[in-house]
């Protein structure tokens, strides 16, 4: 405590304490994230098959990738699945949130029911819907047994339609998430707005579409980001529900990469595919992040 008038030598120590605590974080960021990304990118420019080799082949793997029907179809599938999934979740989630916002009795019971699928594993979701949609013993048979002999619902094994039931299962699982986020947003809407709208003679649907929906932009934005990330990472659901079939009808990029990494032992192609996926994510996120930061700056000044 007693200082002799000279400047204390403690300052470096104080900084050190905070820095030491960040060490694990830095280790994870530099080794597990940045290091692995660079390594993956490096492999994607080599002719590696089951083990990484140093034979550089430029963009050959990328060229092969886009000549591969299976990859092209998996990307197309992702675009279709992703847009329908996000749209479906947003619409259903918003409707459920608005319904729950009407001061209903048993709101918490309904909320619990709408969100429980989000608590279970994608594997569970996939297996349940696989069974429900089983053409010989599932929904189709049950409806036929009721007397509708010609009822057909075999989308799960239909090359052109399997992707839609996959989307349906995903929407079932995740629309509760959107509901929860939207409901939180709705609770933040000033109650006086509804009074003002009523005095202005607006009907409830008009009020929700014209007044409330624009106010929910932040909730919509974070829903889209969360759902979008889920789309890109989609792997478990496909594996459990359809294994990518029939044919390549429900193949998705994440599953394509895993198959080529571990099953087919084609590291070069798989890493090229994951780099493409990464670049896609960055291409989508960077403008969004830019818009966000601009908005944040505008609010601050």
């Amino acid at each position: 405590m007693a200082q002799d008038g000279s400047i204390s030598m403690r300052r470096p120590l104080k900084l050190l304490q905070g820095q030491t605590a960040l060490l694990p974080g830095w280790l994870i960021l530099i080794v597990a994230y940045i290091g692995t990304i660079l390594w993956t990118a490096r492999i994607s420019f080599t002719a590696s098959r089951s083990i990484p080799v140093d034979t550089f082949v430029g963009f050959d793997q990328y060229a092969r990738l886009f000549r591969s029907n299976r990859w092209v179809q998996s990307v197309e599938n992702m675009l279709l699945y992703g847009s329908l999934f996000i749209l479906g979740c947003l619409i259903i989630g918003f409707l459920l949130a608005v319904l729950l916002d009407q001061k209903v009795k048993g709101e918490s019971v309904f909320r619990t029911i709408f969100l429980y699928p989000y608590a279970v594993s994608f594997v569970v979701t996939g297996l349940v819907w696989q069974w429900v949609l089983n053409p010989s013993l599932g929904l189709q048979k049950a409806v036929r047994d009721l007397g509708f002999e010609n009822f057909t619902f075999d989308w799960l094994v239909d090359r052109d339609r399997a992707i839609y039931v996959l989307t349906g299962a995903a929407v079932w699982q995740a629309s509760g998430l959107v509901m929860a986020l939207m409901l939180a947003g709705l609770r933040g809407v000033d109650g006086d707005l509804w009074k003002a709208a009523r005095v202005d003679g607006a009907s409830a649907p008009r009020y929700y579409l014209r007044v409330v929906l624009p106010l929910l932009k932040p909730s919509i934005f974070s829903s889209v980001v969360l759902l979008g990330v889920a789309v890109i990472k989609s792997y478990d659901l496909v594996v459990a529900m359809t294994s990518g079939g029939p044919g390549n009808a429900t193949e998705l990029p994440a599953k394509f990469i895993m198959d080529y990494l571990f099953g087919r032992q084609n590291l070069g192609l798989a890493t090229a595919a994951s780099v493409v996926l990464l670049v896609t994510v960055i291409a989508v996120l960077a403008p969004l992040a830019y818009v966000q930061s601009q908005r944040a700056r505008r609010i601050r000044t």
Partner: peptide, 24 residues
């Protein structure tokens, strides 16, 4: 708050870089 330049004295001590608890 860390200072960028100058000195702070409390009593007979230069506390510019001292820990808060040591400044009395």
């Amino acid at each position: 708050t860390d200072v960028a330049g100058g000195q702070i004295w409390i009593g007979e001590n230069n506390v510019t870089w001292a820990e808060p608890k040591d400044r009395g």
